[in-house]
Amino acid sequence: MPEHTEPTRRRLRKLNLVMLVPPLAAGGAAVVVVDSRTWWDAVILASGVVAALVAFERWTARDLSRFAPFCLIVTAAVWPLGVLVIDSPGASYGLTLVGSLVVPYLKRYRAAAAVGLVGYVAAVGATRLLVSSDDVSDVLLQYVVLPAGAVAVITGLMFPNKRFYDVVEELQESRKREAELAVFRERVRFASDLHDIQGHTLHVVKLKIALARKLVRTDPDRVDSELREIYSLVSDTIKQTKELAYAQRRLNLSAELENAKNLFEAAGIRVRVDREAEVDTRADELLGQVLRETTTNILRHAQATQVKITLSGSGITVVNDGAPQTPLPELHGLATLRDRVADSAGELTVEQTDGRFLTAATFPRPGTAPMEDR
């Protein structure tokens, strides 16, 4: 089961159990109490109700297929017993519920199965005419029209219900793919940055080595100079690569803000940006790093539907929903940035409460406490 879909399924399952099990159980209990004349009648009718509740519970867990045959057999047997022996129009209760759950989820011949289910309920109900001396119209109404009509209506309503759940799963799967694509794009951008750092240097080094090979016998001093430049280039490249790997390369907050918006929108996440004031330019680079790391964490660790980014004169605040109820894994990137922000007289705050995750980086306002030079 896809990890992004599982939480949604659990929420829908809990909602269905809390909202529908009590009225379904109460309706079944009413059928047993009203229509039972002996304890044996109560056992038969209760077995149909229990089978229906089991089927519904398994349906909410998306595990109905294993229990469907048993539940159908029990409820299909209770209905004729209710018609011919117990004199219970409500004996169709269990079959109505189980059938309406099973039929829409068949892979093939669902329409034929729906017609067959309604036909079975009507045909069995009509057999009441063989053992009853009541008015024919009353018998047909109680045992044929009402039970068959209830089965038809409820089963018909379950078809769009199934489509609703299918759409939810499709949306969740699409959102998962979009998030993966957003992370992939971030990796591509990282690879592009790495190429920018190393590609040019390696090309220059290649040319200088080729030149040194030509001059090694004729101009040793020039060769020595070229080798010194190569050494310097390689050292500088190693430094820049480390900075890139540890999110320490100089970034632009405006560019990172635009990139974050594009990534969130690509992942199907609503994003809102509030600019309360212009950010202190001395904190621009660090805030860009915080925003980049926070964006990556949201895409990888949350199931966010909306993100709010607030820019103020003292820093940046990013709040997202969809945070897991369990503690997040250690976020090494933010831990590293917290030290760098602290070194610049700032503070990085991370909070997780009630499904919301907040990341905030703040610095003293200009004129209150100078930031250390980076």
Rank of each mutant, 00 (worst) to 15 (best):
K214C: 12
N252G: 02
Q248R: 15
G355W: 05
L287A: 07
R365L: 06
A323N: 03
F357C: 07
Q352Y: 11
E351W: 02
E265V: 07
P2D: 03
T336E: 03
L253Y: 10
V98F: 11
R249C: 13
V223S: 05
V85C: 03
S344I: 02
V83P: 02
T60W: 11
F357Y: 14
A111H: 10
P147I: 06
G94I: 01
A123Y: 13
V131K: 01
V151N: 03
Q248A: 15
R187D: 14
L286N: 03
E6V: 02
R37P: 06
S225Q: 12
P22S: 08
V290T: 08
G322W: 03
T294E: 11
E186Y: 11
R9Q: 07
T237K: 12
A323K: 02
G90H: 04
R9W: 05
A77S: 04
S65I: 09
W59T: 07
I316C: 10
D138L: 08
P220D: 04
E226G: 08
A277Y: 00
V33H: 04
A29N: 01
P22H: 12
V319Q: 02
T359V: 14
V271L: 12
L157Y: 00
A212H: 14
A52T: 05
R66P: 08
K176V: 05
A267C: 13
A29G: 00
A55N: 13
R11T: 03
P220V: 12
E170K: 13
V21S: 13
E6S: 02
D224S: 13
G94E: 01
A152R: 11
A148N: 01
Q172H: 14
V145R: 08
A30K: 09
L211I: 12
K107A: 09
E170A: 13
Y231W: 04
L24I: 06
G367D: 00
T38E: 03
A61R: 14
R292G: 15
A283V: 02
A302M: 10
L53F: 01
L146E: 05
P220H: 13
V32M: 03
L117W: 14
A30C: 09
F184N: 08
R365W: 07
N259F: 06
P324T: 03
V21H: 12
P370Y: 13
N320P: 09
K206G: 13
V43E: 14
I269M: 04
V33Q: 04
